[in-house]
Design a protein around this nucleic acid. Structure first.
Lengths: 344, 344
DNA sequence: CTGAAAGCGCTAACAA
DNA sequence: TTGTTAGCGCTTTCAG
């Protein structure tokens, strides 16, 4: 049959010789409640099947004021961290009978604002946003709770909005302490987007680890402006040429880590012999790299699942209550990219 | 303002004291055509801005029979190959003012059928599907062209449907020849989903390369049933224990490649010294692996862009013409995972 | 230049 | 047990 030649309630009603309401009732499983004769009910069901009827969700949504759709707004779906999250969200949403509208903002706040507007016009019932994170003013409108929203990965401490994020301070602490314990004192920190919690918390953890070890923070060793691989590449090139005493690098994202890898490899600098490296975001390939990479793992599947759960809790309940903020601990996965300087 | 307190045409009309039709006309830029007095027009525009009006796309879609939405159906968004594709599609769709409904089928034909049905109810204007690919009967309905559809990555030769795919035969030929030229004769092929063009074409290329080199195909060296990493792991474990004379493996996906890597590493088998390896799908990390991986690159960004272009061509034109099938050449990226057995 | 009315497909009072 | 009616928010004839 022709996929566009969609049957409607009217078609069925016409063929059976009944009214659309009856058809609607039967097809929504309310035949019993309305005590519709089982004969008509069966004929309707049969005809619906024959015509391959399925309801127009736009019409349904318009009428019911619910679209059975949620929105997901993500900075860059090709980043494996975000992709894994998206996978979880699509699957969880589908399990609950919801469709997913996806927007990729390319780490651009303007596009993010635009995307959120777009989704609202589509009468989505809830929204999961992995915000770019520098500016959160466009989320203020959501604090009223009229449209359920949950923030993931990055959030805004000053907004009363539910969120799920990794403990980024802890992650950076773990990573930096790990290196310090192995004798490193000149550790560069290659950063992502300044102003985002994901970045700033990590930088804070880095500073804290140094400070508690009595190592002065050298501001020149903190560089980088975005989570992309170019950042890792450029800053590493600069760092290694400027600071000959550098022994370690902390890369604040997996993409940045790639850039570092590339730059180091070009410069003929071996890991961990000359430079040690720890990266945020454990990846399937991390263990198989030339030097198996010591990483900070964020539990992205759990984050995605929690986000969906939080969202649907709010969609379900009319009285959402206090927005929860959930912070998941990070974990240091020790492999072989950090050299122990205390040995020999 | 409250994101849920949406203003409608009626709200504006009420406040201005005009009819909804006039408001609609002005807001759709038809003030001139309908010669609406510039005074009313301006007042309407001002009020719309003040109320932060934006049209309900469900209502609009219902009325206009177009939703400004396309659907994307993908086997597994967390696979980097598909993620990259998704990125391209989201961005391209957005550039054209379209939203994207995403479904992740988890490589399951049943879910795929379900997803496509779901999307149709949402009155999407076009559909891009990366099919699971074993069974294509549910696509027959689309050959009439009533709803534009383009297949990507895998397709069905017997269905007259537009598609974009890589030249999988060529890819496998390149990979296998590359190994044969370096003296390998016992080459295992670890396969993905049988019945899908992506898999079967690759297997065909593998066979062809062996045959043209006068090497008998050993069916026991062809194994595997899915594109996941478990396949690579399991089959590699088996292969290396069964066939001591094996010198090379062709992995038909990046995920399979991971499994191979893991199994080989567990068995203490070094690449390429004892076993050589070529994988399908070049990835950002491929160059940075313990042994930089020789891969077959598929031009996924181009594939995504072409798919979107093909789709929107069909959406735009009422007379779609003959469905085009586009095959993009693959490229062998030579790194260091293949040993040259002719040397010493 | 503008408004009234119909209708996209659906559901839900309200009647009968 | 079923039908009639109204209306979700929008566009578009058709009439002024």
């Amino acid at each position: 049959m022709d996929p566009a030649a969609t049957a409607t309630l009217k078609t069925i009603a016409g063929r059976i010789g009944t009214s659309v309401s009856t058809v609607s009732r039967v097809l929504n499983g309310r035949a019993r409640t309305y005590r519709i004769s089982s004969e008509t009910a069966e004929r309707i069901l049969a005809m619906a099947k024959e015509l391959n009827f399925s309801p127009n969700m736009l019409a349904k949504g318009l009428r019911l004021r619910r679209s059975n759709t949620i929105g997901l707004v993500i900075p860059d779906i090709s980043n494996p961290f975000f992709a894994a999250m998206t996978h979880t969200v699509t699957v969880e949403a589908r399990n609950r009978g919801y469709s997913l509208l996806l927007c990729d903002t390319q780490e651009d706040t303007l596009r993010e604002v635009e995307a959120i507007g777009l989704l609202q016009n589509r009468m989505i019932e809830g929204l999961i946003v992995l915000p770019v994170g520098q500016d959160g003013r466009h989320f203020e409108a959501f604090t009223s709770g009229s449209l359920p929203l949950v923030l993931v990965d990055r959030y805004f401490p000053y907004l009363r909005l539910p969120y799920v994020a990794a403990d980024n301070v802890l992650g950076a602490l773990q990573a930096t302490r790990h290196m310090i314990e192995r004798g490193h004192r000149r550790i560069a920190c290659i950063c992502g987007l300044p102003g985002s919690t994901a970045n700033d918390d990590r930088v804070r953890g880095y500073r804290q680890a140094l400070t508690e070890a009595g190592i002065a923070v050298d501001e020149r060793l903190i560089a980088g402006q975005s989570f992309g691989s170019q950042t890792g590449y450029i800053e590493t090139k600069l760092m290694v040429s400027r600071f000959k005493d550098l022994t370690a690098i902390l890369a604040l994202s997996n993409l940045i880590g790639f850039g570092v890898l590339q730059a180091l490899s070009e410069e003929g600098i071996s890991i961990p012999e000359r430079i040690s490296l720890v990266c945020f975001d454990d990846q399937p390939y991390s263990a198989f790299l030339a030097t198996p990479m010591t990483t900070i793992r964020q539990r992205h599947a759990e984050m995605g699942q929690l986000a969906v759960k939080l969202l649907f809790d709010r969609i379900a309940s009319s009285t959402p209550g206090e927005p929860e903020g959930i912070i998941l601990p990070t974990e240091l996965i020790e492999r072989r990219s950090v050299r122990d300087l205390r040995i020999h």
